[in-house]
Amino acid sequence: MTTARPFLTILAQRALQAFIVAFIVGIVSFAMMQALPGDAAYRIAAGRYGYDMMDAAAAEAVRVELGLDRHWIVQLFDWLGALAQFDLGRSLVYGSPVIDEISVQLGYSLLLAAGAVIASLLIAVPVGIAAGLKPGGLVDRVTLAISIFVRAIPAFALGVVLVLAFAVQLKLFPVAGFRGPEHLVLPSLTLGLGLAAVSNRVVRDAVADAMAAEWQLFARTKGLSARLSVLRHVLRNASLPVVTYVGVQMAYLIEGVVIVETVFAWPGIGHALVHAIFARDVAMVQGTALTLGLIYVALNLVIDLACRGIDPRTRSA
């Protein structure tokens, strides 16, 4: 937790953390799936065949096919053994390899998350800087009020309003789907607005803090123009908490966009996770959870390195 660590130590720590996360996520998700009430064979059969075709005979066929009557320890070791060979197994419901399912859905999730972060930065950075340059000023207070308001509006309501305005009335963007880049705009904007509501305050606080800090005064006494000092010092120092915050946002976005995915019919990993849990698709749940956990670790690594790049103090010693 101290300020400076060599590059290799960071890597090693994150690698160890990745391993621990993989292990814990695997065990926890497996244990929880076992603890769920109801007969797994029935749930899986329901997920596979739909309620018109699903009945007790289908459930029994599923039980035999997947060996669900084996002891849970045997099933767990099966999964761990396969995982050691980088095999996530096949989806119990869809029959396709889990890795295929996840890679498709994760790709779309990452795309949406990236779109949302870009949208939020485009909104938050200018707004935050404007507010932070004069803390307590009019801009600061107005943007605070708007931020709180936007933050309180549920994502789906925001989504419906945007769809009405930009898709139905102005016919600028499509309502839902994911055929081309134009489909990305409205869901990204929905998520981005929600994020920007918080992140513009982070930018504002960081800028305000940096403005107030001692070395900033020092820079001014050195005779640099106000504009230059803002550019050189304030932004550089303000970007640290912002980068950290963007990382936290990414983690939240990748898993937390189920609602926006549902409204915009976007195929994402959050959506897949919800379905997998309800259909009792253990292999999919484990695979998805594992992927999300590892992404979290990777993101933190990227943040660490980015902070090192921005602030030389974290590199020294």
Partner: peptide
């Protein structure tokens, strides 16, 4: 042709209204 699964009924109604579907 394309097939799009949209789980929310509101989304489907908006798709019809905007001409996207």
């Amino acid at each position: 042709a394309s097939y799009l699964a949209a789980g929310r009924a509101e989304t489907r109604a908006l798709l019809a209204e905007s001409g996207d579907a």
